[in-house]
Protein backbone atom coordinates (compact mmCIF):
# COMPACT_ATOMS: atom_id res chain seq x y z
CA UNK A 1 0.00 0.00 0.00
CA UNK A 2 1.25 3.44 -0.75
CA UNK A 3 1.73 5.47 2.36
CA UNK A 4 -1.19 7.61 3.36
CA UNK A 5 -3.63 4.74 3.96
CA UNK A 6 -7.33 5.22 3.49
CA UNK A 7 -8.83 8.56 2.67
CA UNK A 8 -12.61 8.69 2.51
CA UNK A 9 -12.83 12.39 1.64
CA UNK A 10 -13.23 11.59 -2.00
CA UNK A 11 -16.37 9.60 -1.20
CA UNK A 12 -18.08 12.61 0.33
CA UNK A 13 -17.08 14.85 -2.56
CA UNK A 14 -18.58 12.49 -5.09
CA UNK A 15 -21.94 11.85 -3.42
CA UNK A 16 -23.97 13.69 -6.13
CA UNK A 17 -22.31 11.66 -8.88
CA UNK A 18 -22.82 8.40 -6.99
CA UNK A 19 -26.45 9.30 -6.28
CA UNK A 20 -27.02 9.70 -10.01
CA UNK A 21 -25.57 6.23 -10.55
CA UNK A 22 -27.78 4.82 -7.81
CA UNK A 23 -30.78 6.44 -9.52
CA UNK A 24 -29.98 4.53 -12.69
CA UNK A 25 -29.49 1.29 -10.75
CA UNK A 26 -32.87 1.70 -9.03
CA UNK A 27 -34.63 2.63 -12.27
CA UNK A 28 -33.15 -0.41 -13.99
CA UNK A 29 -34.20 -2.61 -11.06
CA UNK A 30 -37.78 -1.32 -10.92
CA UNK A 31 -38.37 -1.45 -14.68
CA UNK A 32 -36.61 -4.83 -14.84
CA UNK A 33 -38.88 -6.24 -12.14
CA UNK A 34 -42.04 -4.81 -13.68
CA UNK A 35 -41.23 -6.03 -17.18
CA UNK A 36 -39.84 -9.35 -15.98
CA UNK A 37 -42.92 -9.98 -13.86
CA UNK A 38 -45.36 -9.34 -16.71
CA UNK A 39 -43.40 -11.33 -19.27
CA UNK A 40 -42.59 -14.01 -16.68
CA UNK A 41 -46.28 -14.47 -15.86
CA UNK A 42 -47.09 -14.83 -19.54
CA UNK A 43 -44.32 -17.42 -19.85
CA UNK A 44 -45.54 -19.30 -16.78
CA UNK A 45 -49.08 -19.44 -18.15
CA UNK A 46 -47.67 -20.66 -21.46
CA UNK A 47 -45.63 -23.31 -19.70
CA UNK A 48 -48.65 -24.62 -17.82
CA UNK A 49 -51.02 -24.26 -20.74
CA UNK A 50 -52.55 -27.49 -22.09
CA UNK A 51 -50.96 -26.96 -25.52
CA UNK A 52 -47.79 -28.99 -26.12
CA UNK A 53 -46.20 -26.57 -28.61
CA UNK A 54 -46.67 -23.57 -26.38
CA UNK A 55 -45.41 -25.17 -23.20
CA UNK A 56 -42.46 -26.62 -25.11
CA UNK A 57 -41.54 -23.23 -26.57
CA UNK A 58 -41.81 -21.53 -23.18
CA UNK A 59 -39.79 -24.30 -21.55
CA UNK A 60 -37.05 -23.96 -24.15
CA UNK A 61 -36.94 -20.23 -23.63
CA UNK A 62 -36.65 -20.58 -19.86
CA UNK A 63 -33.95 -23.26 -19.99
CA UNK A 64 -31.99 -21.33 -22.58
CA UNK A 65 -31.83 -18.18 -20.50
CA UNK A 66 -31.23 -20.02 -17.26
CA UNK A 67 -28.15 -21.70 -18.70
CA UNK A 68 -26.44 -18.50 -19.87
CA UNK A 69 -24.32 -16.28 -17.63
CA UNK A 70 -25.97 -12.87 -17.30
CA UNK A 71 -22.75 -11.23 -18.42
CA UNK A 72 -23.03 -12.95 -21.82
CA UNK A 73 -26.75 -12.16 -22.09
CA UNK A 74 -26.08 -8.46 -21.53
CA UNK A 75 -23.35 -8.57 -24.14
CA UNK A 76 -25.44 -10.28 -26.79
CA UNK A 77 -28.39 -7.97 -26.28
CA UNK A 78 -26.24 -4.89 -26.29
CA UNK A 79 -25.01 -5.76 -29.77
CA UNK A 80 -28.01 -7.53 -31.26
CA UNK A 81 -30.94 -5.35 -30.18
CA UNK A 82 -29.94 -2.45 -32.47
CA UNK A 83 -29.69 -4.92 -35.35
CA UNK A 84 -33.06 -6.49 -34.63
CA UNK A 85 -34.76 -3.11 -34.32
CA UNK A 86 -32.91 -1.78 -37.35
CA UNK A 87 -31.88 1.41 -35.56
CA UNK A 88 -29.44 2.22 -32.81
CA UNK A 89 -30.93 2.63 -29.35
CA UNK A 90 -29.32 3.71 -26.12
CA UNK A 91 -27.29 1.39 -23.93
CA UNK A 92 -29.92 1.72 -21.20
CA UNK A 93 -32.73 0.44 -23.41
CA UNK A 94 -30.67 -2.52 -24.66
CA UNK A 95 -29.66 -3.48 -21.15
CA UNK A 96 -33.22 -3.09 -19.89
CA UNK A 97 -34.52 -5.42 -22.59
CA UNK A 98 -31.79 -7.91 -21.68
CA UNK A 99 -32.74 -7.79 -18.00
CA UNK A 100 -36.46 -8.20 -18.72
CA UNK A 101 -35.88 -11.17 -21.02
CA UNK A 102 -33.39 -12.74 -18.58
CA UNK A 103 -35.35 -12.16 -15.39
CA UNK A 104 -38.58 -13.31 -17.04
CA UNK A 105 -37.08 -16.80 -17.21
CA UNK A 106 -36.56 -16.75 -13.43
CA UNK A 107 -39.88 -15.08 -12.64
CA UNK A 108 -41.56 -17.68 -14.84
CA UNK A 109 -40.23 -20.47 -12.63
CA UNK A 110 -41.29 -18.65 -9.47
CA UNK A 111 -44.75 -17.99 -10.89
CA UNK A 112 -45.09 -21.59 -12.03
CA UNK A 113 -44.31 -22.85 -8.55
CA UNK A 114 -46.77 -20.27 -7.20
CA UNK A 115 -49.56 -21.35 -9.53
CA UNK A 116 -48.90 -24.98 -8.68
CA UNK A 117 -49.00 -24.14 -4.97
CA UNK A 118 -52.67 -23.21 -5.33
CA UNK A 119 -54.73 -26.26 -4.47
CA UNK A 120 -56.12 -28.07 -7.49
CA UNK A 121 -59.55 -28.02 -5.84
CA UNK A 122 -59.66 -24.25 -6.24
CA UNK A 123 -59.24 -24.52 -10.00
CA UNK A 124 -61.84 -27.28 -10.16
CA UNK A 125 -64.24 -25.18 -8.14
CA UNK A 126 -63.71 -22.31 -10.56
CA UNK A 127 -64.41 -24.60 -13.49
CA UNK A 128 -67.51 -25.95 -11.78
CA UNK A 129 -68.79 -22.37 -11.47
CA UNK A 130 -68.50 -22.12 -15.24
CA UNK A 131 -65.48 -19.84 -15.44
CA UNK A 132 -63.44 -19.99 -18.63
CA UNK A 133 -59.72 -20.82 -18.47
CA UNK A 134 -58.61 -17.13 -18.58
CA UNK A 135 -61.30 -16.14 -16.05
CA UNK A 136 -60.31 -18.97 -13.76
CA UNK A 137 -56.67 -17.86 -13.92
CA UNK A 138 -57.51 -14.18 -13.52
CA UNK A 139 -59.98 -14.41 -10.60
CA UNK A 140 -59.13 -17.63 -8.77
CA UNK A 141 -55.62 -18.95 -9.33
CA UNK A 142 -53.36 -15.93 -9.96
CA UNK A 143 -54.45 -13.80 -6.97
CA UNK A 144 -53.67 -16.67 -4.62
CA UNK A 145 -50.47 -17.57 -6.44
CA UNK A 146 -49.19 -14.00 -6.23
CA UNK A 147 -49.84 -13.89 -2.50
CA UNK A 148 -47.95 -17.12 -1.93
CA UNK A 149 -45.08 -15.88 -4.01
CA UNK A 150 -44.56 -12.38 -2.66
CA UNK A 151 -41.61 -13.17 -0.36
CA UNK A 152 -39.75 -15.08 -3.09
CA UNK A 153 -40.54 -12.37 -5.63
CA UNK A 154 -39.03 -9.75 -3.34
CA UNK A 155 -35.95 -11.95 -2.77
CA UNK A 156 -35.53 -12.22 -6.53
CA UNK A 157 -35.88 -8.44 -6.74
CA UNK A 158 -32.93 -8.12 -4.35
CA UNK A 159 -30.94 -10.51 -6.54
CA UNK A 160 -31.82 -8.40 -9.58
CA UNK A 161 -30.77 -5.25 -7.74
CA UNK A 162 -27.34 -6.82 -7.16
CA UNK A 163 -27.16 -8.17 -10.70
CA UNK A 164 -27.54 -4.72 -12.20
CA UNK A 165 -23.92 -4.19 -11.16
CA UNK A 166 -23.01 -6.27 -14.22
CA UNK A 167 -23.92 -3.50 -16.65
CA UNK A 168 -20.37 -2.28 -16.16
CA UNK A 169 -19.44 -4.57 -19.07
CA UNK A 170 -21.17 -2.23 -21.51
CA UNK A 171 -20.07 0.94 -19.78
CA UNK A 172 -23.46 2.04 -18.48
CA UNK A 173 -23.08 4.37 -15.50
CA UNK A 174 -24.92 2.50 -12.77
CA UNK A 175 -23.90 2.82 -9.12
CA UNK A 176 -20.93 0.47 -9.29
CA UNK A 177 -19.63 1.86 -12.56
CA UNK A 178 -19.94 5.45 -11.32
CA UNK A 179 -17.96 4.51 -8.25
CA UNK A 180 -15.45 2.80 -10.51
CA UNK A 181 -15.04 5.92 -12.66
CA UNK A 182 -14.29 8.03 -9.60
CA UNK A 183 -12.05 5.36 -8.11
CA UNK A 184 -10.06 5.25 -11.34
CA UNK A 185 -9.79 8.96 -11.93
CA UNK A 186 -8.78 9.67 -8.33
CA UNK A 187 -6.81 6.46 -7.85
CA UNK A 188 -8.86 5.50 -4.77
CA UNK A 189 -10.08 2.02 -5.59
CA UNK A 190 -10.04 0.65 -2.04
CA UNK A 191 -12.07 3.42 -0.45
CA UNK A 192 -14.66 3.41 -3.22
CA UNK A 193 -15.13 -0.34 -3.20
CA UNK A 194 -15.53 -0.48 0.55
CA UNK A 195 -18.14 2.28 0.31
CA UNK A 196 -19.94 0.46 -2.48
CA UNK A 197 -20.02 -2.74 -0.43
CA UNK A 198 -21.48 -0.93 2.57
CA UNK A 199 -24.18 0.82 0.52
CA UNK A 200 -25.25 -2.39 -1.23
CA UNK A 201 -25.24 -4.23 2.06
CA UNK A 202 -27.40 -1.61 3.78
CA UNK A 203 -29.98 -1.47 0.99
CA UNK A 204 -30.20 -5.22 0.49
CA UNK A 205 -30.42 -5.92 4.22
CA UNK A 206 -33.28 -3.46 4.44
CA UNK A 207 -34.98 -5.33 1.59
CA UNK A 208 -34.37 -8.66 3.29
CA UNK A 209 -35.89 -7.25 6.48
CA UNK A 210 -39.03 -6.34 4.52
CA UNK A 211 -39.17 -9.88 3.15
CA UNK A 212 -39.10 -11.28 6.66
CA UNK A 213 -41.91 -8.95 7.70
CA UNK A 214 -43.98 -10.03 4.72
CA UNK A 215 -43.37 -13.67 5.53
CA UNK A 216 -44.50 -13.13 9.12
CA UNK A 217 -47.56 -11.19 7.97
CA UNK A 218 -48.68 -13.91 5.59
CA UNK A 219 -47.91 -16.64 8.07
CA UNK A 220 -50.26 -14.99 10.57
CA UNK A 221 -53.14 -14.53 8.20
Amino acid sequence: MESGGFDFHIVFHSIPFLAKGMGLTLLLTVLGIAGGLVFGTVLALARLAPFKVLSFAAGTYVNFFRSMPLILVIFWFYFLVPLVLGQEIGAFQSVLIAFIMFEAAYYCEIMRAGIQSVRVGQAYAGEALGLTYPQNMRYVVLPQAFRNMIPILVSQAIVLFQDTALVYVVGLSDFLYSADIIANSENRLMEMYITVAIVYFALCSWGQFQVRNLQKKFAHE
Binding site: I158, Q162, Y200, S205
Partner: peptide, 11 residues
Amino acid sequence: RNVPLLVQLFL
Protein backbone atom coordinates in the same frame (compact mmCIF):
# COMPACT_ATOMS: atom_id res chain seq x y z
CA ARG B 1 -26.16 -12.54 0.43
CA ASN B 2 -26.37 -8.78 0.53
CA VAL B 3 -23.20 -7.66 -1.24
CA PRO B 4 -22.90 -8.17 -5.02
CA LEU B 5 -20.51 -10.96 -5.93
CA LEU B 6 -18.55 -8.58 -8.15
CA VAL B 7 -17.80 -6.36 -5.16
CA GLN B 8 -17.00 -9.33 -2.93
CA LEU B 9 -14.42 -10.59 -5.42
CA PHE B 10 -12.70 -7.24 -5.43
CA LEU B 11 -12.75 -6.99 -1.65
